[in-house]
Design a protein around this nucleic acid. Structure first.
Lengths: 128, 128
DNA sequence: CGACTTGTATCAAGGCCTTGGTGCAAGGGT
DNA sequence: ACCCTTGCACCAAGGCCTTGATACAAGTCG
């Protein structure tokens, strides 16, 4: 058997393929599973592997470049962008702010929110 | 001029009207702005006020009943459900778990996450 | 410098979701 | 018991988003 496929797409899921690809790669980059400079398969190859059109994969790559996850050069391929350290911090802060905003909207206090997160962290069982 | 409209819909926004209605009411209930037993306008009236079809408002009410925010009785109107205290706790826990899951996925530590939330809470400026 | 690799642009086709409008059913209030 | 209020179901119309396929442009590498 070949190497485990980097990306998989489940057509049963309601979320469109290009989003699945985008989010999966974003995760791999954010978690460090894909290090800076790592080259990704060309759009045609990945599209062929997944049974999709090139434009679909291209859209995923494109949005990932816009968010700073990837860097692309025509003829040179697509690679993981170098500054993902700083980006992770931004992503973390963004998530924290969204969470805080939601909590305030619900009328949850600072301490209450922290306690909930702490509990969730220890309890946290992956539910996927 | 009449009383401040409880709900408003902005057709320019990309999010569909029924979602806008649903989320706004959900917020009002969660924050306690609408207390248990408070009666909401009939679907026809709210629809007329907003320039929408009855079915659109009905859908919002329906989903809110499914999530436990509201209770509806034909002929009796739609009212805020009584147990929103317990519900708020559930919602809080759910958000906390989602946040924790995301943080783990990003490889963020327990302490790091708590610090980020704490910071976000003090910084948090409403962004609407 | 030239052929090849790779991402990009474009446009039509298809599907999914949302909305309007109308008629119906259930329950409330007098 | 009756009439009225109110939510619900249904169905067709319209719009937005996504996809496929193909042709094109821009770099790369020998």
């Amino acid at each position: 058997m070949t190497t485990e496929p980097l990306i998989t797409v489940d057509s049963d899921q309601p979320v469109p393929p290009y989003v699945q690809i985008r989010d999966q790669i974003a995760d791999l980059v954010s978690t460090g599973s894909l290090t800076a400079g790592t080259r990704l398969p060309p759009v045609r190859q990945l599209a062929a592997d997944l049974g999709l059109a090139t434009g679909t994969v291209a859209r995923a790559y494109q949005e990932l470049e816009a968010t700073g996850h990837l860097e692309t050069r025509r003829g040179g391929g697509t690679r993981v962008a170098p500054h993902h350290g700083k980006r992770r911090a931004d992503v973390l802060r963004q998530h924290a702010e969204d969470f805080a905003t939601t909590m305030r909207r619900l009328g949850v206090t600072h301490d209450e929110a922290l306690a909930a997160v702490s509990t969730a962290f220890t309890t946290a069982l992956p539910r996927r």
